[in-house]
Design a protein around this nucleic acid. Structure first.
Length: 251
DNA sequence: AAGACGTTCAACCGCCATTAG
DNA sequence: CCTAATGGCGGTTGAACGTCT
């Protein structure tokens, strides 16, 4: 292990080496997916049991879609399930073959940041790059948070009536058989540890509760980043002067 | 070409639940 | 029942990489 002998009490951190991965895989081959902490006590690795488990789950586990971007369908699933379950990334990940909770978490986090940046009030010192000499659009818009994805437009054959109560948006969720009962037989009884997924379809999910956002009613900006094509997250508010202003700018 | 800025992703941290003694 | 150890999970961070200006 990098030329140094294992020391009692020493705990290595940081990126994993190939040797460490091999040692971890060997331990898993011999003892299975348990006793993570014993790896260190046996002197095989200078890593904590937690770290070993995490490495396995996120990188070494077979059939992982590492380095593969989320497909449009996967995005849709995450958005739907996040609305239903909240930030239960591990649970959501069980619906996505080859994805880990970390993957889902990272995906959601970057999506959120992207949307926040899109609607955040920029610092006054920096003029809008594509709007020279004019008042930046976003400085006029007092967005506090990011609007949600509107599932209405995801698929033609799905119907998600979206209700608004004050500034709280309420999704009425409709059964998605492929989501509620994912057909991943390997999750049932494989050697990686049985994972049973059970989900009860919700009739009504207040998005504020589930996501932590206070989604306002917002105009629909023109998206200049790839989400997924069918998904128009924002509903235009015709009365909002900021929306019409921006709309004019795009023409 | 280079610096600024944005994005992605691996890994750590802290909290909580469960389990074993 | 109590306590310590362990595992699981969500939140966060920081490095690496990509894109823009």
């Amino acid at each position: 292990m990098e030329g140094r002998k294992l020391e009692i009490g020493y705990i290595k951190k940081g990126p994993w080496s190939g040797e460490e991965d091999e040692a971890l895989l060997e331990h898993i081959n011999n003892y299975g997916l348990r006793d993570w902490s014993s790896i260190r006590f046996k002197g095989l690795l200078d890593r904590t049991g937690k770290s070993c488990r995490l490495r396995w789950v996120n990188k070494l586990r077979p059939n992982l879609k590492t380095g593969c971007k989320f497909s449009a369908e996967e995005e849709r699933v995450v958005i739907e399930l996040q609305a239903e379950f909240g930030n239960k990334w591990a649970k959501i990940a069980t619906y996505l073959q080859g994805r880990t909770d970390n993957d889902v978490k990272n995906f959601w986090s970057s999506r959120r940041k992207r949307l926040e940046r899109k609607f955040r009030k920029p610092p006054p010192s920096k003029p809008h790059k594509n709007n020279k000499g004019k008042t930046p659009i976003t400085t006029q818009i007092q967005f506090e948070e990011v609007p949600p994805c509107n599932p209405n437009k995801v698929e033609e054959n799905l119907s998600y009536p979206t209700l608004y109560m004050g500034n709280m948006e309420v999704f009425e969720m409709v059964n998605l058989p492929d989501l509620i009962k994912p057909n991943y037989p390997h999750l049932e009884s494989d050697h990686l540890g049985a994972v049973k997924v059970e989900a009860t379809p919700l009739q009504t999910v207040p998005s504020v509760e589930s996501s932590g956002y206070n989604f306002p009613l917002l105009p629909e900006p023109v998206m200049d980043f790839p989400l997924f094509p069918e998904c128009h997250d924002f509903i235009p508010e015709p009365l909002d002067p900021c929306f019409s202003y921006e709309f004019d700018q795009q023409k």
